Amino acid sequence: MDALKSAGRALIRSPSLAKQSWGGGGRHRKLPENWTDTRETLLEGMLFSLKYLGMTLVEQPKGEELSAAAIKRIVATAKASGKKLQKVTLKVSPRGIILTDNLTNQLIENVSIYRISYCTADKMHDKVFAYIAQSQHNQSLECHAFLCTKRKMAQAVTLTVAQAFKVAFEFWQVSKEEKEKRDKASQEGGDVLGARQDCTPPLKSLVATGNLLDLEETAKAPLSTVSANTTNMDEVPRPQALSGSSVVWELDDGLDEAFSRLAQSRTNPQVLDTGLTAQDMHYAQCLSPVDWDKPDSSGTEQDDLFSF
């Protein structure tokens, strides 16, 4: 819950932080000083300027060897085509990944977070970031790969997607708890209302004896509580940590079903599988986004697919 609360507080303090972009060759504004600060901008989305290598189908939802083989196929196909790589912007948030063309600003792909089953910074092609997700059109699994400016960037994108998945799962947990509370309150309110109706004398007997209905007592009954809980029953509950912020979080049926399955089948359902080692994760978390744009010590960066 700490990640969720800190993310909400950060967004309320400075929503404009989320509009910064990394990996864009110096076009961005001043960047936060450390990885923790940038992680807090996830709610509205972190932007990464990358190059799209392509996509291939895979048979399993996750796995280092599986993704490595898929990336190898994608890279080989991209090299064989001889075409310049498409420059894209990857927007990562707890909602998922939005992929747009840098030149036309046209939407290429919009992947809900619950469809993503794996992401990684490839070991062999260490400047490549990739994720595996279920197609929104059918049940097939797709591996999408992107060329980053350097290994640090690939690791940073991988960690960002993993963190977005974690925050999304926490949102789901909060929403589920809130819905259970509202359902319980609604049920209790309905029981109270039913009890009051059972003990209320029939209207005919009131008229016969000349008694008047006590409207004041009726007004004191917990009807307002019942209506408050039943009027918006169809509205999706939102985490309290975000009250007053500009973010509107809505959970669709697909996300609810997917996270429910994860909660039942996995020990740590909030953790998205990645190909990063503990050492890689520690190294990337210690980086400032400013470091992502620094040239690798191995030599001059080449803006070309064939540089790796």
Rank of each mutant, 00 (worst) to 15 (best):
V161D: 00
R196T: 09
A7R: 12
L255K: 03
V247L: 09
G23W: 14
E170M: 11
L206A: 12
L213V: 12
M233Y: 09
I71A: 01
L305T: 11
S246D: 11
K220L: 04
A69P: 03
G8K: 15
L213F: 04
G244A: 08
D198M: 05
S135M: 12
T160P: 00
T230P: 05
A145Q: 00
Q173C: 09
T267L: 05
G26Q: 14
P94E: 02
L242G: 11
S14L: 00
E109G: 11
L103H: 04
K30H: 08
R182S: 15
L272P: 03
S49T: 15
P237H: 10
R115G: 15
E301S: 04
V92I: 12
Q240E: 11
M124T: 13
I74V: 11
S307A: 08
N232A: 05
L141I: 15
Q240N: 14
P15G: 13
D122L: 00
P289R: 04
D273S: 03
D303W: 04
N232R: 08
K127N: 00
T149Q: 08
P239H: 12
D303E: 11
S14G: 12
K87F: 10
P222D: 06
V128A: 00
W22E: 05
W35Y: 11
L193R: 11
T56I: 09
S260E: 12
R238A: 12
I108P: 00
I98V: 15
K30D: 10
Q86I: 11
M46N: 14
T158Q: 02
W249I: 06
K62E: 02
P202N: 05
L147K: 11
L251V: 08
S186I: 03
E170C: 04
G254H: 12
T120I: 02
S14Q: 04
F169D: 03
V174Q: 01
A68V: 02
V236D: 10
D303F: 04
L4R: 14
T77S: 07
F171A: 03
S243E: 09
A164Y: 07
K123T: 11
Q155K: 14
I98R: 12
T230N: 07
P61C: 13
A278G: 09
M55R: 10
P237E: 10
A284M: 15
L242M: 13
F306Y: 08
P61I: 14
A185S: 14
H28G: 13
D2H: 02
R261A: 09
L4C: 06
A68M: 03
I12Y: 10
E33G: 12
I71E: 00
V236P: 10
V167Y: 15
F146H: 01
Q197Y: 07
T77Y: 11
T36G: 14
V226C: 10
S186G: 04
S81Q: 11
M281A: 11
P61V: 14
A78T: 02
K123S: 05
T231P: 13
P239R: 10
Y114F: 07
G8H: 06
S298V: 06
N232G: 14
A70G: 07
R27K: 13
S246W: 01
D122W: 00
A168D: 03
D126E: 00
T274G: 02
V236T: 07
T300N: 10
L53A: 00
T300C: 10
S297P: 09
S298P: 04
C286S: 08
I98F: 06
G26I: 09
G254P: 07
A80C: 02
K72F: 08
I98D: 04
L141D: 03
L215F: 07
V157Y: 00
Q264A: 07
H125V: 00
L17Q: 13
K294N: 12
P15I: 06
R73E: 10
V111L: 09
A263R: 06
G275F: 04
K152V: 14
A78L: 05
N229R: 07
A278D: 06
L47G: 01
T158S: 03
K204N: 07
K184S: 14
E257N: 04
T209I: 12
G8P: 13
I132G: 12
M233P: 12
L255H: 04
T231S: 14
S246T: 07
A121H: 02
V128T: 01
A162T: 04
V157E: 00
L85Q: 00
K220Q: 07
P222W: 13
V226E: 11
T100N: 12
D2M: 04
P269A: 04
K87P: 12
D191I: 02
Q264Y: 03
G299V: 10
D256H: 14
N138M: 14
Q302Y: 11
L11C: 11
D273W: 03
T100S: 10
Y118E: 02
A7K: 12
V290Y: 11
D303Q: 08
F129H: 14
K62C: 03
S6C: 08
L11M: 13
K176F: 08
T274R: 02
N138A: 10
N34W: 13
M233S: 07
C286Q: 10
L242D: 03
D256N: 15
E301Y: 12
L141Y: 13
E44Q: 06
T160S: 15
N138C: 11
T104P: 04
A219S: 05
I97S: 00
K181M: 09
E257P: 06
V88R: 01
V290E: 01
Q285F: 10
N229G: 05
G24V: 13
R151W: 02
A208R: 04
K176H: 10
A7P: 13
I108G: 01
K176N: 12
A162G: 04
D296Q: 03
Q270F: 04
A10Y: 04
Q86S: 09
V58N: 01
D303C: 06
Q285Y: 04
G54Q: 00
S265A: 13
L57G: 10
Q106C: 14
T149R: 10
T225Q: 14
L53F: 01
S93M: 13
N102P: 12
K87G: 13
E44Y: 04
M281F: 05
S260T: 04
I132Q: 01
V226K: 06
A80L: 15
V290H: 08
I97W: 01
